[in-house]
Amino acid sequence: MRMEGKVVIITGGASGLGKAAVEKFAREGAIVYACDMDVEGLDNLKKEFSELPGKVIPKRLNVTDRPAITELIGEIKSEFGRIDGLINNAGVTRDALIQRMSEEDWDLVINVNLKGVFNMTQAVAPVMIDQGYGSIVNTSSIVGVYGNIGQSNYSASKGGVIAMTKTWAKELTRKGAKIRVNAVAPGFIKTPMTEKMPEKILVALEEKIPLKRIGLPEEIANVYFFLISDESSYLTGQVIGVDGGLVI
């Protein structure tokens, strides 16, 4: 087991990409804090992953709630004395053309997708600096690089995640700590978000993708794992596109 005893926090861990990542890390022996707002989804994790070699610890957490984040990080530090990895995976969408997008929908997406990543990283970074190492993975999107119609808020948030990733990769190593920060930019992946899309749109998308299919959550989880693990020990400040070749 390549992650035995390592402590990893995964936000948005109750479904989609996050759930696949929780399973991947637990299979490799990690102690995984699966954080999410979905209480039912978190309860299901206990049942589904209870037999895996690692330990899954479900935690209800809103990444916009800074006091709750501080409390969680304190709990983890007290219990295990370390945080090896953080995956900032939690995210939401509220799509609309710019003429129709409400301020509330703009604020929600920016607060969760951008400020939530900032909140989590700001809380975890001091622990990693003190221990002298760590790996942080931020979930961006190809939309954060190339934009998309009807997603001003989402593309802005995911573009901001990339900018923060590159900044933190420089900041967090200034005093010699071996802290790596990278981003993953998924394309269209089979998750609850894409399952809401009309079938004809999904078929059209698949035709545009060189590999001719929508990606699977497990394929993103594999990249998360690589970036958190020592297998990527000389990789930092990078944006890894996982999109089946949609953007080349």
Rank of each mutant, 00 (worst) to 15 (best):
E51L: 15
E51I: 13
E51V: 14
E51Q: 15
L52V: 03
G54H: 00
K55L: 13
V56M: 03
V56H: 05
P58H: 03
P58W: 00
P58R: 10
P58N: 04
K59L: 11
K59M: 11
R60D: 07
R60M: 12
R60V: 15
L61I: 09
L61G: 12
N62H: 09
T64F: 07
T64S: 13
D65Q: 07
P67V: 01
A68D: 15
I69G: 03
T70L: 10
T70D: 15
L72H: 10
I73C: 10
I73F: 03
E75K: 04
E75M: 00
E75D: 04
I76E: 08
I76C: 09
K77W: 09
S78V: 06
E79S: 07
E79L: 08
F80E: 15
F80A: 14
F80H: 15
G81I: 07
G81S: 00
G81Q: 08
R82H: 10
D84L: 03
D84E: 04
G85T: 01
G85A: 01
G85P: 01
G85F: 02
L86A: 03
L86C: 04
L86W: 09
I87D: 05
I87F: 10
I87C: 08
N88P: 09
N89Q: 06
N89Y: 09
A90W: 14
G91V: 10
G91Q: 07
T93E: 13
T93G: 06
